[in-house]
Nucleic acid binder design. Structure first.
Lengths: 208, 208, 208, 208
DNA sequence: GATGAATGAGAGTTCATTCAT
DNA sequence: CATGAATGAACTCTCATTCAT
């Protein structure tokens, strides 16, 4: 058997049917929360029989997990392709990453709310997300350490701390968007929020 | 109004039943999300008949709304009793408010998750919460304005902006707690987060 | 104890509360079928407590029976006060009786439908109605016999037969009204129907 | 269309289940009015799961409508196959039609009462029945017109009127049967009633 | 006698999941 | 592997009736 070269993390879902189910579910999640979507609706839209669903996802919930996996993979891919060493400003790198994620989440309000609901309800999902956040924090830490060396960031707290809080800032935006400002693009919220909180990260002018 | 001693016992009993239902629901919400709780479970635990539930709450959802209302009222009461004019540091006032809220939310992880889920699913609830956040922001704004005058806070952004972002900082803590650090007290997260982000609010040392 | 003179068949319902309940029920029956009316609605409209209902009517169904009794009594009273001996045309007498009943039924479509439903469901009610129909038939028979003697009606069938079918003609009108022509006054239907079917009752011109 | 033998067995099974539900409902309607029958009873008797009911009838009420449709269809079929042009007596044709309907209704007293109740309660059902009555009246009209030409019927009223009242005569029988004479065959009542009222339809002997 | 809180069986309906075809 | 009929537990909500006050 020939070696599968570069089998990226997204090397699942070859079968077309699975993809169809997936897409149908995604589309429906734009309309209403996941737990108000029935398997029948999904299969109907995917134009397969109801029972077929369970050949691809052992459980309705598994679909959500698979979906999360895709999102997470997408983010990982992006993170991998980043070359922050070359950047002049690490803050800019972080801003880019956040915008990237904001664009994924921002595609659909309802779907993102569904995810939130699901994360509140499923330990498994929560762990997946937590892991991703951890990963992102790790990478951000490298960036912040570099930035500290270059005098970009404050040094009275560790790079880890900087990374930790930077990554968490995203959640302000996410909740604001979901709860109160669904009409504003999520990435705009990200921009504004990062701008506002930047002083908590950068090096202060030396008092003299 | 004349006291009606005859019916007062009955009224007390009635209030008691309502409270029993309420408490039973709260207790259950510590175990699982609200929409996985059945009315029957609630009544069973409250030791009343199933139908009784609907004498007190026209709808299962109304219970959640009533619960939210109670929480919101509690916060309002606290806000009203504050006398921020007398405070030496407005930042401290805000910290107090946030800790107060953190203590309410912090009572039960699952219950708070339930609320989150419910807020994602119900427009009504979302609006209630949004209103409370608005109110809190308004009050915070007064504090920040005062603080700006006294040289406590930066003046390159409006007091409104300061208030807006300060209030939203709470959400970082809330999500961190719900998603990743359920074992750490929510109010500790609040302390740490406020400390970290303080530089984005206070007046910088004049460079010289 | 003084003798209660002329205590007519309607000598029930002295208590005002009972009457209020009764009236409330009647009013509601104008709006919807009896079994869609709840005891609570009735007591609310009567402005008494729910439990009070059951002091006056052992059962919800009993109210309907009482109502029927009232209607039946009203008809009996009317029948008693008739003096058909003095009439020139017995057919006219019958027409009068029918119009009287039509006016009672015609007061409310929904209420009459409710009665029909109830009669289909309750043996008791059915018997009451049947008895009234019998009574009416008996009286009509006397009239028809008189009319036969006077040459008004055909003599090839018995007066009993004439009475029987005459009384039943009313049902054509009732069903037509309930099912298809709710907008036309019931008594008009009675007039037209009696006119049409008159030839089946009167004496034919002697062929010679 | 190509025969699909593979699925035909399944289709047969499906039809069978539907029929089982239908029959179970019919059987129960012989015992009590439709609205006192629960879906659970029906499925129990049909020996299928409760949920299965709703695969076949979206609503409990729809079952009744389907049942009515069947009856109505049966009548339409009969009407279509009639060839009244060839009849010597149009009155006889009408008598046949009425007997046919009487046989359907006469199969079960309770079921017919159920239908009556349902018709009183559902606009939809009422309309269906009214339509059928209309259709029957239309057809009867043709017969009466023919009969008028042939000297069978009176000519001082229109064929439409004759048809209208003839058709409505059936209701006398139906109510008599349902309310007072459940033990007498409905079709006997039809015979007797038609006989009695015939003089209101036929041409009178010319007085001479 | 009046009250209304409490009862609890029961309603119609939904839907994730199974499994014979 | 796909199908979709069947399952049945679970859901929210209703309401005639009871009974302690």
């Amino acid at each position: 058997m020939i070696e599968r070269p570069l089998s990226s993390r997204r090397e699942r879902r070859k079968e077309e049917t699975r993809q169809r189910l997936f897409d149908a579910a995604l589309a429906l999640m734009q309309e209403k929360p996941f737990d108000q979507i029935t398997v029948e609706e999904i299969t109907e839209r995917a134009d397969v029989a109801k029972g077929t669903f369970f050949s691809y996802f052992p459980t309705k919930e598994q679909l959500l997990i698979a979906y999360t996996q895709e999102m997470v993979d997408e983010v990982y891919e992006f993170l991998e392709q980043l070359q922050p060493e070359n950047a002049t400003s690490q803050w800019e790198v972080m801003r880019q990453v956040m915008r990237f994620i904001a664009e994924i989440d921002g595609r659909s309000l309802e779907r993102t709310r569904s995810m939130m609901v699901a994360c509140c309800q499923s330990n498994h999902l929560r762990e997946m997300m937590a892991q991703m956040v951890d990963e992102a924090t790790q990478r951000a830490m490298l960036g912040f350490a570099r930035g500290q060396e270059q005098g970009e960031f404050r040094t009275d707290v560790s790079a880890e701390q900087l990374a930790y809080y930077a990554v968490r800032l995203y959640r302000i935006c996410l909740m604001e968007w979901m709860m109160e400002r669904p009409d504003q693009p999520l990435s705009d919220l990200v921009e504004q929020t990062l701008d506002f909180f930047k002083p908590a990260f950068v090096k202060q002018e030396e008092p003299r």
